[in-house]
């Protein structure tokens, strides 16, 4: 009787593991997309739409950050890598496709009376040199600076484009996602932070830099300077499913969506003619 029990348990286990293990073998129907968490929310949606169009195919989107994504493509762990920064020299051996551009918005609480700062002022705020809104002719309140954590692509882009060699203040509040930065700025009347332009919503206010608001037009005209590319990366020229997915993302349908979500499309939006 004991033996019977053991056998039946064993069979159950086999069935369970069989169910689990036989599925990833359909390599031809799954692609893994990994990398920048700035691109991830958008890529998730693109993947959702792609899978609706192509039932039976699985697009697995994962975060991990730009560097991890680049690494994953190099080692073959992912078919497509996502990066929200330009490739470094030693990474240039990858095949890169720009799928969108993203502005970096400096955001404050909607109730904040200020709506314009110079790049120098922004730098002084984030370096901790300016600590009160009053210095900037705002309210007599201490500034709550909110930044991303070390290693994040958004912080890297901000450091490079705004701070240069100046350090971000140690006292700054650190959060590990654009969403959280936005959430904290939206709740604290004295806060300032930076996030992807695509993620700015009605809960926060994006301010103008040197008099220029972060709009698509200003970015295309290169008047608004805080812009970074969203890249898809492959090991060699994309083919098969990866190519289909990339083509889909570059299609008019998705690029229109890209536009509607606040990113800057690579192709012109639907209203305008192309091809």
């Amino acid at each position: 009787m004991n033996r019977l029990k053991i056998t039946s348990v064993g069979v159950c286990l086999l069935v369970v593991f069989g169910f689990f293990s036989c599925r990833p073998n359909h390599r031809g129907t799954e692609i893994v997309v990994a990398g920048s968490t700035s691109v991830q929310p958008f890529a998730d949606k693109w993947a959702e739409l792609f899978m609706e169009k192509r039932p039976g195919i699985v697009v697995n989107v994962q975060g991990g950050g730009s560097s991890a994504g680049i690494q994953a493509v190099k080692t073959g762990a992912a078919h497509i890598g996502m990066s929200s920064r330009e490739l470094k020299e030693d990474e240039k051996d990858l095949y890169e496709i720009e799928v969108a551009k993203d502005g970096l918005a400096i955001i404050v609480h909607p109730s904040n009376p200020l709506d314009n700062l110079t790049i120098d002022q922004v730098r002084s705020i984030f370096s901790g040199e300016i600590t009160s809104w009053k210095t900037l002719n705002g309210r007599d309140k201490e500034i709550t600076v909110v930044v991303r954590e070390e290693g994040s692509g958004t912080r890297g882009a901000f450091q490079e484009m705004v701070m240069g060699k100046t350090r971000i203040a140690k006292r700054a509040i650190v959060e590990d996602s654009n969403g959280t930065v936005r959430e904290i700025v939206s709740r604290d009347p004295n806060a300032i932070g930076f996030i992807s332009l695509g993620l700015v919503n009605e809960k926060v206010k994006a301010i103008a830099l040197n008099g220029v608001f972060p709009t698509e037009g200003a970015i295309l005209k290169k008047e608004y300077r805080l812009v970074r590319p969203f890249l898809f990366l492959t090991k060699e020229e994309p083919k098969g499913l990866a190519k289909e997915f990339i083509d889909f993302v570059l299609s008019e349908e998705i690029q229109t969506l890209v536009h509607n979500e606040g990113l800057i499309p690579i192709r012109k939006g639907s209203g305008e003619t192309n091809d």
């Binding site: 991990g64 950050g65 560097s67 991890a68 690494q71 070390e150 290693g151 590990d176």
Partner: peptide, 20 residues
């Protein structure tokens, strides 16, 4: 604000590579 040892790990683990 303050950062603990645990949050230092969890905050930055996602993207860290190499010596970081």
């Amino acid at each position: 604000p303050v950062r603990t040892l645990t949050s230092n790990i969890a905050l930055e683990m996602g993207y860290a590579s190499g010596e970081h």
